[in-house]
Amino acid sequence: MALSKIWVLTESQNSKPISISLELLTFASSLGASLEAVTWGGTASQISEELGSYGVSKVLDAGELNGSLPGSPVASAMKQAIDAGNGPDVILIGTTYDGRDIAGRLSAKLDVPVITNVTGLEISGDSLVASHSIFGGTQIAKSRFTSSKSPQIFLVRAKTFQAEPSNSTTCGVESLPVPEIGNSGAAKIVATHVEELTGPKLDEADVVVSGGRGLGEKDNYALVEELAKLLHGAPGASRAIVDAGWVPYSYQVGQTGKTVKPTVYVACGISGATQHLVGMKNAKNIIAINKDADAPIFSVADLGIVGDVHKVLPKLIEALKSRS
């Protein structure tokens, strides 16, 4: 039995599909199955044309959700369609805040497992095989489902595929009704606070400048932010300084955090624990600045500066400023 239908959970931001959703659609479209996008938030009709250019034949729209956090209502709507016999063989979900919620809810509702932290997918026979980057990216584990129960749910990390329109088709919008969900959907968003983002998003940026413990104290993270800004990049962080409360979780690059694949990654005061390497090892170019000459980060760096970030960063920032 070949794959006949695939759903890709498609999130939008500012009425545009987000990058990770388009990356998954690009891969799904290459498999030759019927491709449907599951979405919510009231933007289905605005994004359907762009989704059509990625080979999506139908957008399944769970609607506005009336302020509910998406996890429970969207998963309930998907389950209802699956129970009615309209389900897919495979569901691809991007590793985002809401994507993880929806995958977890759906998995428990359907009693099917989820394969998570996927960094590669390939078709093998009639099913999909997932790759996972482990032990600091030095090894790749390959996994698969052992039960034939469908749908097969995969949670895929950002930048696993490159987004590229293909197999363009006309795309219609169909309602994906949310059933009565009761208590499990009782979490409601009452206010949204948007922090001004001056540069690109971390997982989409062409340049990422990250800071770690070697910065010494929280205030020195400003050097990382300034360098990122001068390079039109995004600031990132190691787990250590997120755990220490210097910067929010959304800045974290690594195993428990984001995967980034920028053209240039600048690691400042980061030792390069396996936890961190998994998230950035596939950057095209890596520059590391660290005073410990034996730090593991140097084993993946194209240019390693053995030096004190407190001395090197200010000089680097000055030199860049004097050029502009």
Binding site: T138, Q139, I140
Partner: peptide
Amino acid sequence: SRQEVFEIVAADARQAGEKVVDEGEAH
């Protein structure tokens, strides 16, 4: 658990490049 890891392979290794000790001008 209805999923399994069935194979573990080595990832492409990344080669370390140039390493410079900062003596004031490494920037």
